[in-house]
Amino acid sequence: MTKMIQMVKVGIADLKVTKSLEKLRTSGLGSCVGIVIYDEIHKTAGMAHIMLPDSTLARKGDINRFKYADTAIEDLLIELSRSGADTFRLKAKIAGGAQMFHFTPASEMMRIGPRNVEAVKKKLVSLRIPIEAQDVGGQSGRTIEFNPLTSSLHIKTVNKKEMII
């Protein structure tokens, strides 16, 4: 019997956790960063699609924690350990953080892609989660798909061939 592989869609400022038979996918990452954290043995993985680097940027008290790099990664860890992943074995793959627009004078918002990538890396380092692979920066949008069975991250861009990291 073959089992159908399901696709779980992760939206903007969204976060999902899945086990083995479901792939995780998020489309049209520009300056946003897609973060995958996974446990290769338990075939458990989670994906977050963050927009902004730091929850302290929020101008309102109540926030969507999945929108910011720092809080989304914290929540991803909690959700992963709830679904049986071993936190000591977790690894990460990240993609996105492009700089889609260039204007002079450059505003802080223009640099949001690189700032998102820095914030994601900083948070992962502080939690001692190794970054196994990454495809970040540049000037192109990305659509990414993670397969928990193989721990492979497929990355589509408009002008380049699909790559697997």
């Binding site: 400022a13 520009g30 902004l52 192109s140 408009v158």
Partner: peptide, 19 residues
């Protein structure tokens, strides 16, 4: 830009996403 709609339009949402 010639690119994915999501990658382009999400940039227009950044200021808004702060509030």
């Amino acid at each position: 830009n010639i690119d994915m709609a999501g990658a382009i339009l999400s940039f227009g949402l950044l200021e808004l996403s702060l509030v």
